[in-house]
């Protein structure tokens, strides 16, 4: 078993009066894909957005409990969200490239963090990120065309390239394939297989098959509770909780 990368301990999340997550405690290992499944509105997206503090944008959102990455409490006062998000990248449900060129989409992160010292280094980072996201060959001749002109699957891989351009440790994926067709989905799944060698991946998915295919560990969320978390084989073959059993067999959700 790989070393533990992310530890969450008794995480409670409130949107105003409403509590969205109840005492979620789970660990995520480095260089593994951890999948979060559950019916709509169960809190899995809320949970994943706590890991890079994207919930900070919502005024009414309040997070309790501790989340540590490599032993550092990311909700401590000293944490800078900008630095945190540099190390914890995110890919969203709907592909959201900037309405700029493919090159600029990938170069933006390195530019604002001052990672590249000159144009050549930046070019190299862009090329490597696109290669790692398995899209370089498709776009190498049109790096300066708008990223929004690509197909949905290509856009999503471009967003993955953008996420890895700042050299993060962790990539969070919030239903990255829900807007894609099966072929594009298959490509992203292959890509995850490659990426987990270098990154820790946490993926939220609606598709149980996808969770079964790509993840090492799976957590099942229901009504804001983490019902069960275990090795993926165990969750899908021999879950210990009745609700998990019902969900994976399609009795609700």
């Amino acid at each position: 078993m790989n070393e533990t990368k992310i530890i969450t301990n008794n995480v409670n999340v409130y949107y105003g009066e409403k509590q969205a997550l109840h005492n979620v405690s789970m660990n995520m290992q480095a260089n593994e894909v951890t999948a979060l499944i559950g019916p709509s509105g169960c809190g899995k997206s809320t949970f994943i957005r706590c890991l890079n503090r994207m919930n900070d944008v919502i005024d009414t959102c309040k997070v309790e409990g501790t989340i540590t990455i490599d032993g550092y409490d990311i909700y401590s006062k000293e944490t800078s969200v900008e630095k945190l998000r540099e190390r914890v990248g995110m890919v969203f449900q709907k592909p959201n490239p900037f309405p700029k060129s493919i090159y600029e989409n990938v170069a933006y992160g390195p530019k604002i963090h001052g990672i590249a010292n000159n144009k050549n280094e930046l070019d190299e980072i862009v090329e490597n990120s696109l290669k790692q996201a398995a899209i370089f060959d498709e776009v190498k001749d049109r790096l300066h065309e708008p990223g929004t002109a690509l197909s949905g699957g290509q856009q999503q891989r471009l967003c993955i390239a953008r996420a890895i351009s700042v050299n993060p440790d962790i990539i969070l994926m919030d239903e990255p394939c829900s807007a894609l067709d099966p072929i594009a989905t298959a490509r992203i799944e292959e890509l995850m297989e490659e990426l987990k060698k270098d990154y820790t991946i946490v993926i939220v998915t609606h598709s149980m098959q996808q969770a079964a295919r790509v993840s090492t560990k799976t957590g099942f969320f229901h009504m804001g509770n983490l019902v069960e978390v275990d090795k993926t084989e165990v969750i899908f073959s021999n879950p210990s909780n009745k609700k998990t059993q019902d969900y994976i067999t399609g009795r609700f959700g």
Partner: peptide, 27 residues
């Protein structure tokens, strides 16, 4: 301007002002 653009910029570690000035305002 779609909120996804703001999220995209924030998620790569842009400050709020960078997200707004680099991405939202030009659009």
């Amino acid at each position: 301007v779609p909120p996804s653009i703001r999220e995209a910029a924030l998620a790569v570690g842009a400050t709020r002002m960078q997200a707004v000035m680099h991405h939202v305002v030009p659009v």
